[in-house]
């Protein structure tokens, strides 16, 4: 590179640094001070009994609330999502192959159904595992314990069945509308085949969305790390939550960097 160009570029970057550095330093200092005071305040509020009281309250409340939430969720899945799926399948079957606005609406509904099932699956596993842990650690009667386990298991099975019905129904119909699409939802390599059959515009959307979601994960992990650290001090939640978030954060960043390196080759 030309020396003159290097000197000029160096000067320009130095000038920019001078402009942005003080703001950056102030933000860092403010964040540090805020963290220090919040940490000290959290220590001050540390009451030996608080974690015990909170745990007892949460256990007593959530052990009944979670199964009810689970049942409501399954009812929504069965009473809303499945009828919507049937309606959209009927609409897709009568498409004349010409009306583009019509089929775009149908495809949007299919996409919304897939998003719903993804959300319900995450919520379902979350509720199921939390409920099981609460049942194990609580002092409720044997009857209540058995009832909660029974309801949770039934709901888990229902969720898996309904989710599979909806997802396979949606994928089957998307494949009918788009003959170029490949992949069977029950096959292990479904995602790979599906992605391979997506064209450049669809892949562009996927990659853009993935990058955005990676950025969101970074921000969320940073805040969760702070929150779990503070709750660790106040409520004695231990190092496990901080450790889990560190793992998720690391995995997200490592997979991103690995993929960037692979694509840049």
């Amino acid at each position: 590179m030309d020396k003159k160009y290097i000197d000029e570029k160096d000067k320009q970057i130095h000038k920019e640094n001078k402009k942005y550095m003080p703001i950056f330093m102030i933000i860092l200092l403010a964040a540090g001070l805020l963290g220090f005071f919040v940490g000290r305040a959290a220590r001050k509020f540390e009451i030996s009994d608080l974690s015990g009281q909170l745990e007892s309250f949460l256990t007593k409340t959530l052990i009944y609330v979670l199964p009810v939430m689970y049942v409501i969720m399954i009812l929504i899945l069965a009473a809303v999502c499945i009828p919507v799926l049937i309606k959209q399948i009927k609409k897709a079957r009568v498409w004349d192959g010409e009306d583009e606005e019509y089929i775009e609406k149908v495809e949007k509904s299919f996409s919304n159904l897939l998003n719903c099932t993804a959300f319900f699956t995450i919520a379902s596993f979350g509720i199921f595992f939390m409920s099981m842990l609460l049942v194990e650690s609580s002092t409720v009667s044997e009857t209540v314990r058995k009832l909660v386990i029974f309801v949770d298991l039934i709901c888990l099975v229902c969720d898996l069945v309904f989710t599979t019905i909806i997802q396979s129904g949606v994928i089957k119909n998307i494949r009918m509308l788009n003959p170029e699409k490949r992949g069977n939802i029950f096959a292990l390599n479904f995602r790979k085949k599906w992605e391979g059959s997506c064209d450049e515009a669809e892949q562009y959307v996927m990659y853009k969305a993935s990058y955005k979601s990676c950025k969101v994960v970074n921000t969320v992990c940073m805040w969760l790390m702070i929150i779990t650290f503070l709750t660790g001090i106040v409520f004695k939640t231990g190092i496990m939550p901080v450790f889990c978030i560190a793992i998720i954060w690391t995995c997200s960043n490592l997979s991103f960097v690995r993929e960037v390196n692979r694509l840049e080759k």
């Binding site: 010409e98 583009e100 089929i103 509308l177 997506c198 064209d199 450049e200």
Partner: peptide
């Protein structure tokens, strides 16, 4: 139609639709 056009150029109906609307610049 868009579906047939997509098949002719080896892309999806949605991509043809997006190009026509000006929402996507093709490669």
């Amino acid at each position: 139609n868009q579906q047939q056009m997509g098949a002719l150029v080896g892309t999806s109906r949605q991509t043809i639709s997006q190009i026509e609307r000006g929402d996507y610049s093709p490669s």
